[in-house]
Simulated scan of single mutants.
Amino acid sequence: IYAEKKRHMKRVLLGAVAVLLACELYFWLFGNSLRALVLGTVVFFTAFNLLEASLPSLISKVAPAGGKGTAMGVYSTSQFLGAALGGILGGWLFQHYSLSGVFLGCAAMALLWLVFAVTMREPPYVTSLRLPLSAAALHEVGLAERLQAVPGVADAVVVRDEAAIYIKVDTQQLDRMSLERLIEAAPATC
């Protein structure tokens, strides 16, 4: 909620990844006591759950208006492939380098993620809308381009098969009534 309301998504993402990295190093150094494992696990899963909630939101923000479903499908597939490959890699590290090797391997992956995340641009703070289109508006040439000229509209895609338009908007800048009037003002004939 903080990341969305205050528009600090990148900062929160970087913080969560840094906490994961710190937890892996903590487990590597102090993972021999039950108390340390419990404390580390609570902190680790706090950061993990934050990422689990914020990454899909981040993906939907950066995906184009007409490609959100595809982007989420790729994300979901990557997530499950990562879980499978992570288990295989973790098992290999444990077999060859013991538990310390697993923690150091995970710390290396978290560090790599942090390096890439630092270079990431701040994501756009947009919300996706799906608005139905009348038959006249559906065939209007240039409707998506005119809508993109409305302040607060970041992207617009007409999907004729669904008789709808998908729009990404910044709700703090958008005048929703102007947007809806523009859609309704489509000429009756094409």
Results as ranks from 00 to 15, higher is better:
M120G: 00
A163C: 13
A36S: 05
V17I: 14
V150P: 00
S128N: 13
L133P: 05
V158D: 09
A107E: 04
H96R: 14
L138F: 02
G142W: 09
K10L: 05
G87Y: 04
R35V: 11
V150A: 00
A186I: 01
S178R: 05
L179T: 04
K6S: 09
S128D: 14
M109P: 06
E4M: 10
K168Q: 15
L138V: 01
V19E: 05
T171L: 15
C106I: 13
H8I: 08
L179A: 06
A163G: 11
Y2I: 13
L14F: 00
F27C: 02
W92Q: 09
F116C: 02
Y26V: 07
Q148H: 01
A110M: 15
A108E: 06
A163M: 14
L39E: 00
A108M: 12
T171G: 10
C106A: 15
L58W: 13
I88M: 12
Q173C: 05
V19L: 04
T127D: 07
G15H: 03
G82E: 13
E145H: 03
A186R: 00
E180I: 06
G66E: 13
W28F: 15
A164S: 14
A149E: 09
R7L: 00
L138A: 07
E52R: 08
L20G: 04
F45V: 05
I88Y: 12
A108H: 06
F94L: 13
A110K: 08
V74H: 10
K10A: 01
A163P: 05
M109Q: 12
L20K: 05
E4N: 11
V74Q: 07
L111H: 03
T171C: 12
A137V: 06
P187S: 00
A84R: 12
M109I: 14
E24I: 03
A185G: 08
L13V: 04
P124V: 01
G142M: 07
A110P: 04
L50D: 07
R35T: 14
F45Q: 03
P123D: 01
L147Y: 01
E180V: 10
M109V: 15
A71Q: 07
L20Q: 12
Y125G: 01
F48S: 14
Y97D: 13
A65H: 08
L51Q: 00
I183N: 06
S98K: 09
A63V: 02
E122M: 04
F27E: 03
K6D: 05
A186M: 00
G101R: 11
L182R: 03
Y97N: 14
K61H: 04
R146F: 05
L39Q: 00
A164K: 07
V74I: 12
E180S: 02
P151R: 01
L81R: 12
S57L: 15
G142F: 10
A22D: 09
G73N: 08
R181A: 04
L29S: 15
P151S: 02
V118L: 11
V38C: 01
M72Q: 12
R11C: 00
F48R: 13
A47I: 04
H139M: 08
I165K: 10
N32T: 12
L112Y: 03
A36W: 05
F48G: 12
Y125W: 02
L111W: 06
R181H: 08
I88T: 06
R130I: 15
W113S: 12
G82T: 11
S178P: 00
A65T: 07
E184L: 09
L93T: 02
G90I: 04
L50H: 04
V43L: 08
L138I: 02
A149L: 07
